[in-house]
Design a protein around this nucleic acid. Structure first.
Length: 561
RNA sequence: UGGGGUAUAGCCAAGUUGGUAAGGCAGCGGGUUUUGAUCCCGUUAUUCCCAGGUUCGAGUCCUGGUACCCCAGCCA
C-alpha cells in the first residue's frame, strides 16, 4: 500500500503558507454552506470533499451550515436530504449543523452598527429604480436620493422595516460604498430586504432577511472559519466580503478563496436545471438513477468511495473545465471491480437445451464469489438440462473473432461444462427460439481433450438455469443528454431540454439471474459477469428483483467480429 | 463596452526560487486469464494560447496580442 500523498492544489498551498506564517493560531476551519433549495449533486460533492478533506488532513474541522437567507426557495425536505447525502459520503461535520438563520439577531445588530457608523442607509427607491441607478458595465452608478439620510432617520426606518411597518419592495438597507466602482458588486450592495414569508427555521419572527453577501462573511467570522472556499462566480464579491468583516465587530478574519466549479459532460449540474427536470417530469425524481445528484448516483449504485476518489482525481484549480464522464465511470468501476460479488444474469434470454443431459437432473456447480479474492468465498450455481444464454452470445455462423457460441462449435458455460451447438429451433416467423446443444461431461474444471479437432472452443459465456433461475427486471441507463454540452448548439426556441436523450432508460422485463440472489436487499451491488455492475433498486420486492445498471464493463473487442 | 478571471496532450491536472514537461482518464500495441473484464508490460506534448524580447538556458521573467468564463437579482 503506497502512502496516499495529499494532492497538491493552490488552496492547500495557501493553507501551508498560512500555517508556516502562524496565522489563525495554526487552526484550519472550513465549512460546507449549501442553500437548502434543492438536492445535492456531483458538483457539491467536489466542494464537500474539498472542505471536509482539507479539514481532515490538517487536523481541523468543517462545519455544515445551511445558507438559509431566502425563505422563498427553501424547504425542510432539502435540509434532510443534504444531511443524509453528506453523511452517506462519509463525512461528519463539527458539532450540530448550523444555520445562517441562527445568527439573524447578531446580523441585525451588526447592521445597526453599520448604520451608526454611517456605512449603511435605508433606500426607498423601487426595485427598478435601484437597477437604473446602479448603472451598467460601461456607465457608473449614481447615488440614490436617499443615500444621505441621517443616522437617526436610517435607524428609525430600519426599525420600521424590521417591525413590519413597510411593504415588500418599499425599502432596503444598503451598504454605503461606491456607486462609481467598476466592480458592480460594490455599488452600494443591498444588505437587507423585506420578505413577508414564513421561514422554515425562524417562522414568522422576521419580515426582513439579510442578503447572502452580508450574511456569508459574518457567519464565517462568527463560526471562526479560517478558509472560506467558494466557486469562481463569487470572486467579484470578495472585496465586499472583506469590507463586511473589516467594518463590523466580529471575532475573526476569515478569508475567501475561489475554485472552479465542476462540470461534467453529457449532463447538467445546475440546481435550477435539475429542479426543472424533476418538476416537469423528465425524470423520476431527484433520485432518478440518471440524475447527477448524490441521491441519484446512490440509487444508481455508485459508492461513496468512488465519488470521493473521483473528486480527488479531478483536482482543484481555477480553470473552467468540463470533466469527461468516463472519469466518473472509471472511479466506480475501480471500486466495484475490487469489491462487488460476481453473479450471472441473462438479460435477453435464449433457451438452450442440452440434449444429452438427463431430464430432471440438477447439479450444483461451485463458483468463486470473486475471481481475484478468495476470502469472499464461493457460491453455488445450479445446472440443469435447460438454461438461458444471451441472444447476443449465439450466432449461426461467425468469423474467428466471435468468441461465443456458434452453430457447430463449442463454448464453455462459465463455471460449468463445454457445450456444442448442434441445432436450432425456429418459430413460425423463422426466428430462433431455442438452441440444441450437447455437453461434454469431462470438461468440468478442465479443457476438452480434443480441443483441435471438431472445431475449437471459442470462449466462455454466462448462463442461468431455466428451471432454477430467478426472473427479474433490469433497468439499463444511457446518458441523460445526447449532447456533450446540453447548453450549446441550441436553435431558436430550444433549451437544454431539447438535448434530452429519449433512450436514456431501457427496461428489460424478462431477465434471469442465478438463484443465489434471492432476497437481495436494495442497494446491494453485483458484477453481472461479462455485462457490468448492477445494484438492487428500491423498487425490488421479494417476488421480483429489480436491478439498476450502474455502469457497463469496459469493452474492447474487434469491431468486425 | 468597464471590472474580475483562466489558457500545459482528446479530457482533468502537477509543474513555487528560470535548469531541460508528473500523474489520472481516454486511446493504441503486447502478455496472462474459465468475464472480450481485471491484472501486467510498453506506447501517447522536442513542447506549454499566439508573437516578439531578456537569458548559457523560459511552461515559468518582460512586452504586445488572441480566445474563453464570470459580474448589471430586493437569488445563492
Amino acid at each position: 500500500m503506497s502512502e496516499t500523498k495529499a494532492p497538491s492544489n493552490f488552496i492547500r498551498q495557501i493553507i501551508d503558507r498560512d500555517l508556516a506564517e502562524g496565522k489563525n493560531d495554526g487552526q484550519v476551519v472550513t465549512r460546507f454552506p449549501p442553500e437548502p433549495n434543492g438536492y445535492l449533486h456531483i458538483g457539491h460533492a467536489k466542494s464537500i470533499c474539498l472542505n471536509f478533506g482539507i479539514a481532515e488532513s490538517y487536523g481541523g474541522s468543517c462545519n455544515l451550515r445551511f445558507d438559509d437567507t431566502n425563505p422563498e426557495k427553501e424547504e425542510d425536505e432539502y435540509i434532510q436530504s443534504i444531511k443524509q447525502d453528506v453523511q452517506w459520503l462519509g463525512f461528519q461535520w463539527n458539532g450540530e449543523e448550523r444555520f445562517a438563520s441562527n445568527y439573524f439577531d447578531q446580523l441585525y445588530d451588526l447592521a445597526v452598527g453599520l448604520i451608526q457608523k454611517g456605512l449603511a442607509y435605508v433606500d426607498s427607491l423601487s426595485p427598478t429604480e435601484i437597477a437604473e441607478y446602479r448603472g451598467n458595465f460601461t456607465t457608473p452608478g449614481k447615488p440614490s436620493p436617499y443615500r444621505d439620510r441621517s443616522v437617526d432617520e436610517n435607524l428609525a426606518l430600519f426599525e420600521q422595516m424590521r417591525d413590519n411597518k413597510l411593504d415588500e419592495g418599499e425599502a432596503v438597507l444598503r451598504a454605503k460604498i461606491d456607486m462609481q466602482s467598476p466592480n458592480i458588486s460594490l455599488r452600494d450592495p443591498i444588505l437587507y430586504r423585506i420578505r413577508k414569508k414564513t421561514h422554515h427555521q425562524t417562522g414568522d419572527k422576521w419580515v426582513i432577511y439579510p442578503m447572502y453577501d452580508f450574511t456569508h462573511p459574518l457567519s464565517d467570522a462568527i463560526e471562526g472559519i479560517t478558509h472560506s472556499l467558494c466557486t469562481l462566480e463569487f470572486e467579484d464579491h470578495r472585496p465586499f466580503y472583506d469590507w463586511v468583516v473589516e467594518n463590523t465587530s466580529v471575532p475573526a478574519t476569515p478569508r475567501q478563496y475561489e475554485f472552479a466549479r465542476l462540470n461534467l459532460n453529457y449532463t447538467v449540474t445546475s440546481k435550477r436545471k435539475l429542479k426543472q427536470l424533476v418538476d416537469e417530469g423528465h425524470v423520476d425524481g431527484w433520485n432518478d438513477p440518471r440524475m447527477p445528484t448524490i441521491s441519484g448516483l446512490r440509487r444508481r449504485g455508485y459508492t461513496p468511495t468512488s465519488i470521493r476518489t473521483f473528486c480527488e482525481s479531478v483536482g482543484v484549480s481555477r480553470a473552467d473545465s468540463v470533466v469527461d464522464m468516463a472519469m466518473l465511470e472509471a472511479a466506480i468501476r475501480d471500486d466495484l471491480n475490487q469489491h462487488a460479488p460476481r453473479a450471472m444474469c441473462v438479460m435477453n434470454p435464449l433457451k438452450v437445451v442440452i440434449e444429452n443431459w438427463e431430464a430432471g437432473k440438477e447439479e450444483t456447480l461451485v463458483a468463486p464469489v470473486h475471481p481475484q479474492n478468495e476470502s469472499m468465498g464461493t457460491r453455488h450455481v445450479p445446472m440443469t438440462r435447460e438454461v438461458y444464454i444471451d441472444r447476443e452470445d449465439f450466432r449461426e455462423e461467425a468469423n474467428k473473432k466471435f468468441k461465443r457460441l456458434v452453430l457447430g462449435d463449442r463454448v464453455r458455460l462459465r463455471y460449468g461444462y463445454v457445450v456444442r451447438a448442434t441445432d436450432v429451433v425456429r418459430d413460425d416467423q423463422g426466428e430462433i427460439v431455442e438452441v440444441r446443444c450437447s455437453y461434454d461431461p469431462n470438461t468440468l474444471g478442465k479443457n476438452p481433450e480434443n480441443a483441435d479437432d471438431q472445431g475449437k472452443m471459442r470462449g466462455v459465456i454466462h448462463w442461468v438455469s431455466a428451471d432454477k433461475g430467478l426472473p427479474c427486471e433490469v433497468r439499463l441507463y444511457d446518458r441523460l443528454f445526447s449532447a456533450a454540452n446540453p447548453d450549446k448548439g441550441l436553435e431558436e426556441g430550444q433549451t437544454f431540454l431539447s438535448h434530452i436523450n429519449p433512450e436514456s432508460l431501457t427496461v428489460l422485463e424478462d431477465c434471469w439471474v442465478e438463484p443465489g440472489l434471492r432476497g437481495a436487499l436494495a442497494q446491494t451491488r453485483y458484477q453481472f459477469e461479462r455485462e457490468g455492475y448492477f445494484c438492487v433498486d428500491q423498487d425490488s420486492t421479494d417476488e421480483r428483483l429489480v436491478f439498476n445498471q450502474t455502469v457497463g464493463l469496459r469493452e474492447s473487442w474487434p469491431k468486425e467480429a
